[in-house]
Structures are given as C-alpha cells and as structure tokens.
C-alpha cells in the first residue's frame, strides 16, 4: 500500500502560442493552460499503482490559484487529494527553486514511499525537477522510467536511455520520473468529475512551508530569465550547395545548431 506523491505542473498549451510581431517576444497571456503532458503520465501511473496495490496518491502543484481546474482534472482522474502551493512570492522561481518549494511541502505532508513526476515539462523541457527534488530529499532517483512495477517495498523500473534500456531497482522511498511511453493517461468520466469536487485540496503558502520569501521566486532563484524570443516560423529556403558530401555535412551541422537533431 504505497504512499505516493505526484508532482505536476500547469503549462501553456503551446499550440496556442502567439508572437508579438513587433518585439518577436512570445505572448503567453490568455492562453489555455493545461497539465504538462508527462505529468499526466505520472498521475496515471500513480493511479494504476493504486489500483493494483492500494495506497494513496497525493498531487502536489506549485501554481497560481487559477490552476484549480487542472487540480480538479487530476483529482477526477483518480488522485486522492491535492496540495496547491501558491504564493505571489513564488512567481519567477526557476526549476531548482520549484524543487525546493515542493520538497518543503512533501516534508510537511509526512512519510511517503514514492514520488512520481514527469520526466520533463512541455514548456521548458529541462528534465531537472525530478533529480533536483531527489537531491533535496536525499532520495535515490530513477529518471526516464518507461515501465514501473512494485515488488514488496521496492520499485523495479525500465529506464529509456540514449543507448538502450536499463532495468533498475530501488527500495522505498524513491523518486521516479516517467516518460510519455509509460502509459496512456485516462480521461475522467462525468461521474468522476463530480466526485472530485468532494476531495481534499490543501493550500499552502511560503510561510506555511517555513520558506523565507527571499529564498524563492525571482530573487531567490539562481537562474535569471532574461528574455523569451520566438523562433521565426517562415521557412528559410536555404539551398545547401557543394558536393553531396559537403551538402550532407552542412545539413547535419545546421540541424544540430537548430537543436532539432
């Protein structure tokens, strides 16, 4: 009967992103927000584990009070309760600072066996939250898990790495970050949506977590975001000339430079 924590976050739906044509900056205001894709896989995996082994799954999210529909969605899918960490002081936190906030909340929630999170978020895709959180809580970590099984009080997981599959095991407590391949997140039925209204949602601020407001948010984060600029979407129409070998080499280098290979 594992006690599980699922970390999830809200992101903008990248399909709706628009560019300010004057500044070339990305406009993220007023765009639909959703639970980050891989986090849905983490939620689904916790629910599946619960269906097989019992236990409890608590969702934890750092977000604005406006993220409540996403919390409700997670509860409708089957999480038992949720914990919203919301404070104006959290605004502008970098990933590792978000991990610090989550760590404080998870300590406050009490003993647990597993933490599940998505391997990466669809907005930043930095894949840093899991490892950073594991470090904060001094836990073993299994990142990029594409299959998870519980055997008594230990977890066996397949990790999808660059060069192959690695099967690893670790005893509770442990942190797992899951890939998109691990499962297909379910859609809640209307009945489950209605039932979710009755589930508990804890709401904590920085002070509840014993966090100083200097240690979080913009001023508390070691990473400073200076600017987000759009990629120009028009096609470049560049012909790669020269011998075939030269053209091929240039193509690979350009694609690597574009960050698409």
């Amino acid at each position: 009967m594992p006690e599980m924590i699922v970390c999830f976050k809200e992101v903008v739906d990248e399909r709706e992103l628009k560019v300010n044509p004057k500044t070339q900056e990305l406009m993220t205001e007023g765009i639909t927000r959703k639970i980050s894709d891989f986090d849905l896989n983490a939620i689904e995996e916790a629910i599946r584990i619960k269906e097989m082994h019992g236990g409890r799954a608590t969702g934890v999210i750092v977000g604005l009070p406006e993220c409540k529909p996403s919390i409700k969605k997670a509860l409708s899918m089957g999480l038992d309760r949720a914990c919203l960490l919301s404070d104006p002081a959290f605004a502008g936190s970098d990933t590792l600072t978000v991990a610090a906030i989550l760590a404080a909340a998870i300590r406050k929630l009490g003993p647990f066996d597993m933490i599940l999170c998505g391997e990466a978020s669809t907005d930043g895709f930095s894949a840093q939250l899991g490892p950073s959180l594991a470090e904060r809580l001094d836990l073993p970590q299994i990142t990029a898990a594409s299959q998870v099984t519980i055997e008594g009080n230990q977890v066996v997981a397949e990790r999808s790495l660059d060069d192959g599959i690695e099967v690893v095991e670790a005893s509770f407590p442990v942190l797992l970050s899951v890939t998109k391949e691990i499962n297909k997140p379910r859609l809640a039925t209307l009945k489950q949506i209605l039932a979710a209204s009755k589930k508990e949602v804890l709401e904590w601020k920085a002070a509840d977590l014993g966090l100083s407001t200097d240690a979080v948010g913009l001023q508390g984060s070691p990473i400073v975001l200076k600017r987000v600029a759009a990629f120009r979407m028009e096609r470049k129409n560049i012909r790669l000339e020269g011998t075939l070998a030269e053209a091929a080499e240039r193509a690979i280098r350009e694609l690597l430079r574009e960050g698409v290979l």
Binding site: P69, K72, S76, L187, A188, L190, I193, L194, S197
Partner: peptide
C-alpha cells in the same frame, strides 16, 4: 458550471 467545463475539456480531448 466548473464541472461542465471540465467535462467539455475531457470530451474534446477524447
């Protein structure tokens, strides 16, 4: 209602 909105979102996704 909030529930109906969430339901709409689920059905749309499906």
């Amino acid at each position: 209602s909030e529930d109906q909105e969430l339901f709409r979102q689920m059905v749309r996704e499906f």
